[in-house]
């Protein structure tokens, strides 16, 4: 597929890419710190991945193999739309295989297949500021980061425990990066938070509407905030994936009828497919002979 000649490679002009690239490099040098940048209007709406798209546009090259996921799946409408955009604007190869991708743009999930050194994971971030629900003012939160003044977040989590017996944050769980910056992981489920820690891939975060870029270099210490008597823990499901039998992946709940019947299936469609190809089966897999006939 060749790129659309009416636009520069990657849609953005070179001056804009340079500005983004400088911001990305500073973000890598200061892990977890939100670097302000001159976000541009993209042809997709704010809130739909414009930050991730700008980061991807600044990073992507002709030799890259791009994967785009939303909610873990390559075939959700917004993932399709963003993948089509980059196919048109760059002509690069795309894939649904996590292992084959050099560059992965994601919304709300980290792939189940462990990432490799050399891969880059770009997160779409709606609200980059971890302290935002506690302090709406940017002028204040910037000072709080400068002073590493994160007591309010510990108080909030403690109040959760006092009220509910639990920390009531199920996604976008706050983490401390390299012992210095409090960071928002974007709205990934708690289940994915441990994957950020010491990941060999480079992780970049783009918030277009809020005009911030931040990063986790490979092998960076990423610690979820918790308490000794209330350690961080991830979600568990009552049953394995109904299609591939996985017990180690994040499961989507699918409602089957109006009588309350439901099933759980992998949110990561590539992971689930790869397991099925390898012969793993779940309780609702079609009979073998039927699958062979397809």
């Amino acid at each position: 597929m060749t790129a659309d000649d009416n636009y520069n490679f990657g849609f953005l002009d070179e001056q804009t890419k340079r500005m983004l690239r400088r911001a990305i490099l500073k973000a890598v040098a200061i892990p977890g710190y939100q670097v302000p940048f001159g976000s541009r209007e993209m042809p997709l709406p704010y809130g739909w991945g414009t930050g991730g798209m700008q980061v991807t546009a600044a990073v992507i090259g002709a030799d890259d193999v791009l994967k785009v996921i939303d909610q873990g799946a390559d075939d959700t409408t917004n993932a399709v739309s963003i993948r089509r955009f980059f196919t048109r604007m760059t002509g690069v190869a795309t894939t649904e295989k996590t292992r084959q991708a050099t560059l992965i743009q994601t919304r709300h999930r980290v792939p189940e297949t462990p990432l490799q050194a050399g891969q880059i994971l770009v997160y779409q971030v709606p609200i980059p500021e971890p302290l935002r629900w506690l302090e709406p003012r940017e002028t204040e939160t910037r000072i709080m980061h400068a002073l590493s003044e994160y007591g309010v977040m510990h108080v909030k989590l403690y109040e959760d425990i006092a009220r509910h017996g639990h920390i009531s944050t199920a996604y976008d769980y706050p983490v401390l990066v390299n012992g210095r910056y409090l960071m928002r992981c974007s709205p990934i489920p708690k289940f994915d938070t441990p994957k950020l820690h010491m990941n060999p891939a480079l992780q970049l975060f783009g918030a277009g509407r809020e005009k911030r870029i931040y990063a986790l270099p490979p092998h960076t210490d990423v610690k979820p905030l918790d308490f000794a008597d209330h350690p961080f823990e991830i979600e568990h499901w009552p049953e394995p994936c109904a299609l591939c039998g996985a017990t180690d992946s994040f499961l989507d709940e699918v409602i089957l009828d109006d009588k309350g019947d439901r099933m759980f299936v992998c949110s990561d469609t590539d992971y689930c497919g790869e397991r099925r190809e390898a012969g793993h089966r779940g309780r609702m897999s079609p009979p073998e002979n039927l699958e062979a006939a397809e």
């Binding site: 939303d70 909610q71 409408t77 009531s168 199920a170 990934i188 489920p189 994040f250 989507d252 709940e253």
Partner: peptide, 13 residues
């Protein structure tokens, strides 16, 4: 846009 992953996480909690 779909938010079912976040919703699933909340549901579990």
């Amino acid at each position: 846009l779909p938010h079912h992953v976040d919703f699933q996480a909340e549901l579990a909690l």
